[in-house]
């Protein structure tokens, strides 16, 4: 069984926190996930298949020509940020 402490570590690495009751729900989900993984492992000949990361082989893959087609200007790039200074996104000081 995966520990709550370990789940807290993952959440911390993902830069968010969760309530105690939510970690318990998550731990229950992990138990189900582990069981389901055993099912996947038990599929005959699974090791003979390569991992698939795309639905099918793209026979007509292409690269677009090396020309500027679309880029965001500074104004647009900063338009949704809550705190900006000159041409930059402003964040709290890292070094005091």
């Amino acid at each position: 069984m995966i520990s709550i402490e370990k789940l807290k570590k993952y959440a911390n690495n993902l830069e968010f926190d969760m309530k105690e009751s939510e970690y318990e729900t998550l731990r229950d989900e992990f138990e189900i996930l582990f069981k389901q993984m055993e099912l996947i492992d038990s599929i005959p000949d699974i090791e003979k298949y390569s991992p698939m990361s795309f639905p099918f082989k793209l026979e007509d893959a292409y690269l677009r020509s090396d020309e500027v087609t679309m880029s965001l200007d500074k104004k647009d790039a900063l338009a949704n940020s809550k705190d900006t200074l000159n041409d930059s996104v402003k964040v709290p000081k890292v070094v005091e």
């Binding site: 789940l7 993952y10 993902l14 492992d41 599929i43 298949y49 698939m52």
Partner: peptide
């Protein structure tokens, strides 16, 4: 959190890559 666990180096082979193999199959 589940995604992060799956992608952790020591779990990738057993979880992520095996799921991708099953997808292939």
């Amino acid at each position: 959190v589940i995604g992060s666990y799956i992608l952790e180096r020591e779990n990738q082979e057993k979880l992520f890559l095996n799921a991708m193999r099953a997808r292939h199959l």
